[in-house]
Design a protein around this nucleic acid. Structure first.
Length: 885
RNA sequence: GGGCGAUUGGUUCAGUUGGUUAGAACGCCACAUUCACAUUGUGGAGGUCAGUGGUUCGAGUCCACUAUCGCCCACCA
């Protein structure tokens, strides 16, 4: 074995071993409990970043843990076609050759995207393997696969039949760069430092004018009314008058609407039904005309008169200039407002009137709200429940049509003639395939809707579409059985950013189409940030590349480090340096295993429980076993409640600071004996199993060297053995550790060289401590370079000795001639001061009558006992000081 | 405008239902290398738990307010 753990040499080989043996695969097994996680499908455009690393490390830990616990654990992988994002990437690629997608035409462009998908779409999936992800790769799915596309169509048809899908003209969020509609969730609001422009609108047949305030002055070109609050007395006179829209000279009515806040701006609002959602609603209520002044690329159109062809922001400046010249711009004040930005390209989106497809969400939301309220689905951390419910209670209809080419084509066919004749009412067929004829006019040539569906319209079906849903009734399909076995899935692990996009919608879809929740638990983890707290993103260049970290520190180090520093649901602040911890830990385990392998004389196969019952074990043996089982219990509980960082830290503490630091050091004095090797081996072997979900590679590699049987990956999670939890041994061992540390402390502070062994005298009043003499003698020789050890009740203090006072004993190291009296006196006096301070606080507490009367008796007793011990310690320490002078 | 999270030694963070002398990792200081591991070992220094007020016998922990930072939602023309 190499002296240091070499992750590079190990990881690829071990992953092949798992995959080669088919250990990653899961199949329904009636004898086992199902456990299933469907991966949040990464975008095919994605490359692995730390967010993925965290997300997948969590999933893999849960899957491996459950697999070892004996569940049939399926982790189902796949990717998302990411409509807009992928189309953008391929368009950018084309642009390098000076081409646009329209140059290729729809069919060729989509072919091009498929080619891109085949070449690069699997990148992230390959990278997931490097993390050690134990997915069942046979089941890998892609949202544009035939089966999943079929599910999309099925769902569209079902919802349409139910009246939950409709088409209509509404204000939607329009990205002028991507040239498509977006859902409300896809428009990300950001605060901008803008201005409020006060513009004068003349009153017809009068010298007077009114003033409106707006943040987007260019939209005035589409104004078709002005509005005031009906209760606003200031403008009573105004009602019924006609206003002249400057620049375009359109006549505007004055309407009244409750929506208007009299306190904002001037209390008079310009109404632009085609470019503002509120104004659109007012337009509907008051039968106003909608004047669209914009082209899809956000340049103004012919309705904008002289501004035709100008970009929206240029037009804003130019129009303001014109207004200023005409003396109609009254004033400009700074005004912060929030504006939607495209979540894919960050362009400012435009509220835009267009004909789109929508899903009516309220009826779908109701059961999904109930499922969470009833506790059928639980969020971890719990606080997300409120966020979810808040959104669901205020849910709005979902705009699902996208004016792009890459995605699931909307399964709707039109008869152009009938459509035109009926204003869109007739000549529309929702169908799996193109019908031969128009059902309304009976003539041929139907055309399919040009649009595709929102990417999330396939994502929300992911927990069951990946299993081949829908099935024909009575189907005996294997996939149907898989779905029945694994659905509802067990846990969804994801980031907070997509609770609305994805989690909420999956719950609605699961209940609607499968009649059951899609998952029982939702574990929401934090966002990965750099060490200054900025979200990691490629454009900011503050990325820590997980693959680089794997190359440098190893996948286990990456996993363990990121998990142990990630408190449940909190954001993670990462720096490269933090991965050293995981690497060092892997190396520690590697070396302690190497030590054992080097010393083991024979193979160990006997059962620990039998051995425990039969053999006479040392105190250290009983202690390490007891500690192990306590740790096992705590780690199991932590994992079951998603406190992964806690589990990781428990393992670190046990393996490094109990097993390696103490047990192995003690065991060295009897390393030749079978009994010692047996316990060393058993504890290590079980610890490796417990650690395996966190550090799969190093534990598997050691396991293969330790015992040649089945891989650790499919070995059972250790069973708790209550009979080995041994409180007395743990306490006794703690006493010994305290004594050893105290001796080491004296040695270090008195600068006693390691070579120089010392005699130790321990005085105690406790019989149980005296009984530890044999163990103490053996252990302290190795652990604290003690030559001889005396331990007695009321042992006599040797002359000229350094001392330490513990709760239960006094320790003396006679150092006649070696000891620097002054130094020792200083050292002890410092201690005395510390004790005095503590004692003062305690005494005060115990003099407090309220405390004595009101606090529970056991607490009072505890404090009294503490005070007594402290008082004795102080007395002894003062005696020691006196003795030194 | 509403909501959520954070504020604990130099740094990054734990601290589950209020009761131990508030823990860890990294960093720092000192010492140690024929010992499985210098990706190591041993010892040590370092904190009025953001502030104010309250509840309580007792508050890092519960409540209120304040401050700073961050995030999410919202029809702020």
């Amino acid at each position: 074995m190499e002296k240091a753990y070499n992750s590079k040499e190990v990881e690829g080989r071990i992953y092949e071993l798992w995959e080669g043996k088919g250990l990653l695969n899961a199949e329904p097994d009636a004898k086992k409990k199902p456990y299933c996680i469907v991966i949040p499908p990464p975008n095919i455009t994605g490359i692995l970043h730390m967010g993925h690393a965290l997300n997948n490390a969590i999933q893999d830990i849960l899957i491996r843990f459950k697999r070892m616990q004996g569940d049939e654990a399926l982790w189902l992988p796949g990717t998302d076609h990411a409509g807009i994002a992928t189309q953008n990437v391929v368009e950018r690629k084309l642009a390098k050759d000076g081409k646009k997608r329209h140059d290729l035409g729809r069919e060729k462009f989509v072919d091009e995207v498929w080619r891109w998908q085949k070449e690069y779409g699997g990148t992230i999936i390959k990278q997931l393997r490097r993390l050690g992800s134990s997915c069942d790769w046979r089941r890998e799915r892609f949202t544009m696969d035939e089966g999943l596309s079929n599910a999309v169509v099925e769902v569209f048809i079902r919802l349409h039949k139910k009246g939950l899908i409709y088409r209509g003209n509404y204000i939607i969020n329009w990205c002028p760069r991507c040239q498509t509609a977006l859902s409300d969730e896809e428009a990300q609001h950001k605060e901008l430092n803008g201005h409020l422009y006060y513009i004068k609108y003349p009153i017809k047949d009068s010298k007077e004018y009114i003033t409106v305030a707006t943040t987007r002055p260019e939209t005035m070109l589409g104004d078709t009314a002005v509005a005031v609050n009906p209760k606003d007395k200031r403008f009573k006179e105004l009602i019924g008058k006609t206003i002249i829209l400057p620049v375009v000279n359109r006549e505007l009515k004055v309407i009244t609407d409750d929506l208007i806040d009299p306190k904002f701006g001037t209390g008079i609002v310009k109404v632009t039904p085609a470019h503002d959602p509120n104004d659109f609603q007012m337009g509907q209520r008051h039968g106003l005309e909608s004047v669209n002044i914009m082209n899809p690329d956000a340049t103004l159109n012919s309705n904008a008169g002289n501004y035709d062809g100008m970009d929206r922001f240029e037009a804003r400046e130019a129009l303001l200039e014109e207004l200023k010249e005409r003396g109609l711009l009254l004033k400009v004040t700074p005004h912060d407002y929030s504006v939607g930005h495209c979540y894919r390209c960050h362009t400012i989106v435009e509220p835009y009137l267009s004909k789109q497809w929508f899903v009516k969400m309220k009826p779908l939301a109701e059961p999904a709200i109930a499922a969470v309220k009833k506790g059928k689905i639980k969020f971890y951390p719990e606080r997300w429940t409120k966020v979810y419910l808040e959104w669901m209670n205020n849910i709005r209809d979902w705009c699902i049509s996208r004016q792009i080419w890459w995605g699931h084509r909307i399964p709707v066919y039109y008869c152009p003639k009938c459509q035109e004749a009926s204003d869109g009412e007739k000549g529309l067929v929702v169908a799996r395939a193109k019908p031969d004829k128009c059902p309304d006019c009976g003539s041929g040539t139907l055309v399919q809707d040009e649009d595709v569906l929102d990417t999330w319209f396939s994502s929300w079906l992911w927990p069951f579409s990946t299993f081949g849903w829908p099935f024909e009734s009575g189907s005996q399909d294997k996939q149907k059985k898989d779905l029945e076995y694994f659905y509802p899935t067990s846990c969804l692990v994801t980031a907070q950013e997509i609770i609305f996009f994805w989690v909420a919608r999956m719950i609605m879809a699961g209940l609607e189409f499968c009649g059951d929740i899609p998952f029982k638990d939702v574990y929401i983890h934090g966002t990965v940030r750099d060490d200054t707290g900025t979200k990691m993103s490629k454009s900011l260049g503050n990325i820590i590349d997980p693959l680089e970290i794997i190359d440098e520190f190893g996948a286990d180090a990456l996993r363990f480090s990121i998990i142990s520093i990630t408190a449940v649901g909190q954001d993670v602040y990462l720096s490269k340096q933090k991965f050293e911890m995981g690497r060092n830990f892997a190396n520690k385990i590697w070396n302690v295993s190497r030590f054992l392998i080097m010393n083991m004389k024979e193979e160990i196969s006997a059962d620990l429980c039998a051995f425990y019952a039969k053999e006479k074990l040392t105190l250290a043996d009983r202690w390490i076993l007891s500690s192990f089982y306590r740790t096992l219990d705590a780690v199991t509980k932590s994992l079951e409640s998603y406190r992964l960082n806690e589990a990781a830290n428990l393992l670190y503490e046990f393996i490094w600071h109990k097993y390696c630091d103490w047990y192995v050091e003690i065991a060295k004095s009897s390393i030749g004996e079978y009994k010692t090797q047996f316990i060393l081996f058993k504890v290590l072997e079980k610890s490796l199993r417990m650690l395996h979900p966190f550090m799969p590679f190093v534990t598997e590699e050691i396991w293969q060297k330790l015992k040649a049987k089945e891989p650790i990956m499919v070995s059972p999670w250790p069973h708790l053995q209550d009979q080995m939890i041994d409180q007395a041994s743990e306490e006794a061992m703690e006493r010994i550790i305290e004594i050893v540390v105290a001796i080491r402390n004296i040695r270090a502070e008195m600068n006693i060289e390691k070579k120089q062994q010392v005699d130790v005298v321990i005085s105690t009043s406790r019989a149980d401590v005296v009984k530890l003499k044999d163990e103490l003698s053996i252990y302290s020789t190795r652990l604290a370079d003690v030559k001889s050890l005396t331990i007695e009740k009321k042992a006599k203090r040797p002359e000229m000795s350094a001392s330490a006072i513990l709760d239960f004993c006094e320790i003396f190291i006679p150092l006649e001639g070696v000891i620097d009296i002054k130094q020792e006196k200083q050292r002890v006096e410092k201690k005395a001061k510390e004790f005095e301070g503590l004692l003062m606080a305690l005494s005060k507490k115990l003099k407090n009558k309220d405390f004595l009367n009101k606090a529970p008796k056991d607490i009072v007793d505890q404090e009294k006992a503490k005070e007594k011990v402290l008082r004795e310690k102080l007395k002894k320490i003062q005696e020691n000081i006196k003795n030194l002078s």
